[in-house]
Nucleic acid binder design. Structure first.
Lengths: 186, 186
DNA sequence: TTCCTTTTTTACCAAATGTTAAAGGATGCC
DNA sequence: GGCATCCTTTAACATTTGGTAAAAAAGGAA
């Protein structure tokens, strides 16, 4: 829980009173490997702080699972498209390892907007940060080759290479597993 | 100005008092075609409401200008990566036609967070909306072919096809002008 | 109109990526 | 150990896209 508040404090200092209120809203959970936390036809109602483990987002647009994001230790995650727009978006969440999380419901987030002065600013900054991150990822698809995108992935997620099947990484950078295998060979 | 407030009201109803404060912060401007509002080495300090005209964002990662976004009548825009992270990001803004805008400085946005109750919520929702939009655009690069991305572009921006050079559209969907010309032929 | 510039199309060949299929490795279970 | 399953590599061929170059088309200005 301490690391969670360290992460939140990066956005804005949180008073002790608010800390208490926020802490009450986060629920601790263990998620077994292979669990689907949100199905594509469901609405994501929770936002997760990943204490330990690995998760991915995935969509299934053409009969094949595509990885939309990876999350590892000490990262926030959710099906953001669904969590934000409050409707199913086809995106699901999969635990790729046994995971330990703190989760908070959208309902509780809205409640904290009224109960604390900090929460609104934190969520705004998180959305801004995610926005910039998503934009940069889009730009990379516009001007980087598959090989360059793979090299960026290795740089950003060196530890995932060991434990994640190659196929999941390939779809994350927008190519097939065979193409990625070919790229790695060189 | 009325349409601007219609757009803002979509996020949250705005009181008359707040409306006055907000209105004071927006400055009306005419931007001649060809103007570069923000250079890549500069920090974007303004957020724009495009009353009339067309703009694009662009980056120059490999000696060639890449379109990052298009904005037309009644849309908000800025170099969001730079505006949010408060540093230069290489992204510049170009007026593709004579434009009429209302612009507000980042400084004034921050001031309105304190002076009004609505602004924080509006900006949070804008960031969330932009976040979801950017995510979906990324996903499209992951699983759509160039042809499919072009068809989506035509669907989203039918009017731009008439007035924007093809090359700018091609880089927006991540291909060369020649490839797009080939795709259109079929 | 004519000239000049910009934009678009076309062609040819090279490079990158997809598709399909098969084989080899790794891992876990009985 | 042996079997089954999943993961990874490899190969051959098809398709898409890039790079270069040139021609055709479109638009603007004198």
């Amino acid at each position: 829980m301490e690391k969670l508040f360290n992460a939140l404090n990066r956005y804005i200092p949180i008073s002790e009173a608010s800390k208490q209120l926020i802490a009450q809203c986060f629920v601790h959970k263990h998620i077994p490997k292979g669990t689907i936390l949100v199905q594509g036809h469901q609405t994501a109602r929770y936002f997760y702080w990943l204490v330990k483990g690995t998760m991915r987002g995935r969509i299934n647009p053409k009969g094949e699972l595509i990885t939309t994001w990876f999350a590892t230790d000490n990262m926030f995650c959710s099906s953001m498209t669904s969590f934000i727009s409050r409707k199913p978006t086809g995106e699901s969440i999969e635990a790729l390892e046994d995971c330990e999380v703190y989760c908070i419901s959208r309902h509780d987030v809205l409640r904290l907007f009224k109960q604390t002065t900090e929460m609104s600013s934190i969520v705004r900054q998180m959305a801004e940060e995610g926005f910039v991150h998503a934009l940069n990822r889009t730009y990379q698809f516009q001007y980087l080759s598959a090989k360059e995108r793979y090299e960026l992935f290795v740089k950003h997620y060196p530890k995932l290479l060991q434990k994640i099947p190659l196929g999941m990484i390939a779809t994350y950078i927008g190519i097939t597993q065979q193409s990625l295998s070919r790229i790695r060979k060189k």
